[in-house]
Design a protein around this nucleic acid. Structure first.
Length: 760
DNA sequence: GGGTTAACCTTTTTT
DNA sequence: AGGTTAACCC
């Protein structure tokens, strides 16, 4: 028994962390080691035993979901509501700061949040205004570049103009974009963070009041923080020095979007005297799974170092299945799930994990034909759907007519005779006088610069908006939304659209009214409920799928799986080029992140982990010969059991929809399968399929004279590049190409007809 | 203004 | 391959 019941249910390391004395503290929390428990108990402990007011605590997470869950759990522990405690995502908290101190932050009170889609549109608008060709200046890349700058804290004004024309133009676009945002009161996601940081940096009074208020700052998923988030945290905890961060360098999988593991790796250096506590006891996975995951992650260099252990039994070995293609892979997976469910287990205990979302389709098809309910994570979320964004745009105009993004979006939706010409005229007027599109539209009509028809159409649009504003002034949010949907003509527009999708859109719009009716702002401010609703829609896009099925198989990318756990996990598509992803192989330093992703995937599994790879995979209309992922070779063989397909269960051709699966037809191999595992390096030689592979298109390609008898695994010599191994083949005849990994020259695609390759 | 065709892109995702 | 988006034509 410990001093407080809060600590009773914790292990030694967890107790140490939860009851640590004030100061900087890093909890290195391995997968499944009770990270969330430590965070929630820490807050509860501070409040309960240290007489810290919840108002003096700042707790930061990365997702709204995590934040909600954490709040709920702490409230449960304390048996009291945490009402005024500052707890939320970085973006949510920064937004709150900016709303409260908009003036000091140099923002108008009615600033609007741009989500990435809105931001993309604005960038295109800037490109248009600068007369830059989108083909040469891809908006996506510009968006990425601008966000990277902001996330590193670099303002356009402070950037050097750059040496080459590329950099100079980018700089020009960045400047113009920021100017546009300033002019129209727009704040993008990165801007929320940067602006908030600058507010604290520049305004001493505000800074000190928050530094004084927040006696304890706690951060979840610290390995995912980017440069400004880290600065923001340091600044806020500068006075109290109580920064409690929880993270796992081995689960850092968002480096590609600006997250800096370095923040975690150098924590002890940045905070001299900081305590580091390791949580290494894993409560999730059985021994085989855990040791295999440990072995894989051990291949990474530059780790803080951690080795998970468990008191659990070894459990089942990791099942390894070499599928002939992605269809076979899906059939096998579905069959396995079927027998698991037949054994009385829940479907939602099964997860199919993959590297890229494109892989989900085959699984969906097979699950569908097996009559197995499933749920795919990822994809468009509620507030990101086009029809919802249309409706929100109307609401935005009602709340603030000067919102240009909203104006652009719905001025002619449903179509009301306002075409590109008319719009261009209005835009020109707006640009020339630095006024909003709304004002420009008014002026354009007044100045009689439009043909009568167009003029009348614009006039009608302005009246619709003005009419809605007047009519909804005294209504509740739900009724406002309802009114706007009807009087904008939007609902009618989607009702008239035919097809299944249109019906879903109408349903979504109706759901929006429900969402609006149920919306209760969690902060009472001078801002109208409508504005808060709109800000909330941008910050919290809602669940990926509207209807959450009760008990269904879970399909998701490895990234989405972080933080979750399932008794039964399938890790699919474990092939070189797919996982680790080709793009990751091309960029230096990305391989380790892929390995961490693999580690994350493996450690999701509690009872049984199945890893699949396919010898041939059709992806984006091409067929690829994938060698088994290098990560497989990093798993000690004693943790692996190979599953072999009996001939009958195998789906050899793509067209046969054979083998919807009956949980039969797969034979369990034993540890003796090591020899054949190593043979997977040269899949074409595997005795399993070579003799019986029929003339699939790919097999034809191999027999094609263009390939001169090359196949994956062949050793070849090139006059210039030297020796190498064939990785992949595609196309046929004179267009046939071959991918070779040369010892010295690296990976290259060559046209067979010209390459003059010699078989070694 | 609506419907059709052609070009395009396709890692991972939250806010 | 497949889906979306942009240009294009009536």
């Amino acid at each position: 028994m410990t001093a407080t019941p809060l600590l009773d249910s914790l292990n030694d390391a967890q107790q140490l962390a939860v009851s640590a004395p004030p100061g900087a503290l890093l909890v290195l929390a391995g997968a499944g080691s009770g990270k969330t428990r430590v965070l929630t108990h820490r807050v509860a402990w501070l409040v309960q035993t240290q007489q810290i007011s919840p108002l003096a605590v700042l707790a930061v997470t990365f997702t709204n979901k995590a934040s909600r869950e954490m709040r709920g759990r702490i409230e449960e522990l304390l048996r009291m509501p945490l009402g005024g405690m500052w707890m939320g995502t970085f973006h949510g908290l920064c937004h709150r700061l900016l709303r409260m101190h908009f003036e000091a932050a140099g923002l108008p009170q009615n600033f609007e949040i741009l989500d990435s889609d809105d931001q993309y549109r604005q960038i295109r608008r800037v490109l248009r205004e600068l007369s830059l060709d989108e083909a040469h200046w891809p908006p996506r890349q510009i968006q990425w570049a601008i966000n990277s700058h902001k996330e590193e804290g670099r303002r356009a004004q402070n950037l050097p103009a750059g040496n080459d024309i590329q950099q100079q133009t980018l700089h020009k676009i960045y400047l113009a974009y920021d100017e546009l945002c300033r002019r129209f009161h727009l704040v993008d996601f990165a801007e929320l963070l940067l602006r908030s940081l600058e507010l604290l940096q520049r305004n001493q009074t505000i800074r000190e009041s928050y530094q004084q208020r927040f006696q304890h700052v706690l951060v979840d998923e610290f390995q995912d923080t980017n440069a400004i988030q880290y600065k923001w945290l340091r600044l806020l905890s500068e006075r109290s020095k109580n920064l409690f961060v929880v993270g796992d360098d081995d689960q850092s999988i968002y480096g590609w979007r600006g997250a800096r593991v370095e923040n975690l790796l150098s924590f002890e250096k940045d905070f001299p005297g900081a305590t580091v506590i390791r949580l290494e006891q894993n409560y999730r996975s059985s021994g085989n799974i855990l040791r295999a995951a440990n072995a894989v992650i051990a291949h990474n260099a530059g780790r803080l170092g951690k080795e998970l252990w468990t008191t659990r039994a070894d459990g089942e070995k990791i099942r390894l299945y070499a599928a002939s293609n992605e269809i076979d892979e899906a059939n096998f997976t579905v069959a396995s799930i079927e027998s698991w469910v037949a054994g009385g287990n829940r479907r939602d205990g099964c997860a199919v994990l993959y590297r890229s979302n494109a892989q989900s389709r085959v699984f969906e098809e097979k699950l569908l034909s097996a009559g197995m309910p499933y749920r795919v994570y990822g994809g468009l979320r509620f507030f990101e759907r086009a029809e919802i964004k249309d409706a929100l745009a109307y609401l935005r105009l009602v709340s603030n007519r000067d919102s240009d993004p909203a104006f652009e979006r719905v001025v002619n939706l449903p179509t009301r005779g306002i075409g590109a010409k008319t719009l261009e005229e209005i835009r020109r007027c707006a640009r020339a006088q630095q006024i909003s599109l709304w004002c420009a539209a008014k002026q354009t009509i007044a100045a009689d610069r439009l043909p009568p028809r167009a003029s009348a159409a614009v006039q009608r649009f302005l009246e619709i908006i003005a009419g809605m504003t007047a009519a909804t002034a005294d209504l509740e949010l739900g009724e406002i939304t309802d009114h706007v949907l009807i009087h904008s003509g939007l609902l009618e527009h989607y009702r008239n659209e035919c097809g299944e999708r249109a019906q879903g859109k109408v349903e979504n719009l109706e759901e929006l009214v429900t969402a609006a009716r149920n919306f209760t702002p969690d902060e009472t401010q001078e801002m109208g409920t409508l504005s808060l609703f709109l800000a909330n829609a941008a910050l919290e896009a809602g669940e990926g799928q509207a209807d959450e099925w009760d008990d269904c198989v879970q399909l998701m990318s490895l990234h989405s799986a972080k933080g979750l756990e399932f008794p039964l996990v399938f890790l699919c598509g474990m092939e070189e080029g797919l996982f680790p992803h080709q793009r990751a192989l091309e960029e230096p330093g990305r391989l380790e992140e892929e390995r961490r992703l693999c580690y994350v995937g493996m450690t999701r599994a509690m009872k049984q982990l199945t890893i699949c790879h396919a010898e041939i995979r059709r992806l984006y209309g091409r067929e690829h010969y994938g060698q088994p992922s290098r990560f497989l070779k990093e798993i000690p063989t004693e943790h692996i059991e190979e599953i072999r397909a009996t001939r009958m269960a195998r789906s050899y051709t793509r067209s046969s929809g054979y083998g919807s699966g009956h949980g039969m037809g797969y034979a369990h191999g034993h540890a003796s399968g090591h020899a054949s595992r190593s043979s997977k390096n040269a899949p074409a030689n595997s005795s399993l399929h070579t003799p019986t592979r029929p003339a699939t298109p790919s097999a034809t390609a191999i027999a094609d004279p263009g390939f001169q008898g090359l196949k994956p695994g062949s050793q070849v010599r090139h006059q210039k590049f030297g020796e190498g191994m064939v990785l992949d083949l595609e196309g046929r005849g004179e267009h046939a190409r071959v991918q070779v990994n040369f010892k010295d020259a690296g990976q290259k695609w060559l046209v067979c007809a010209h390459a003059n390759l010699d078989l070694v």
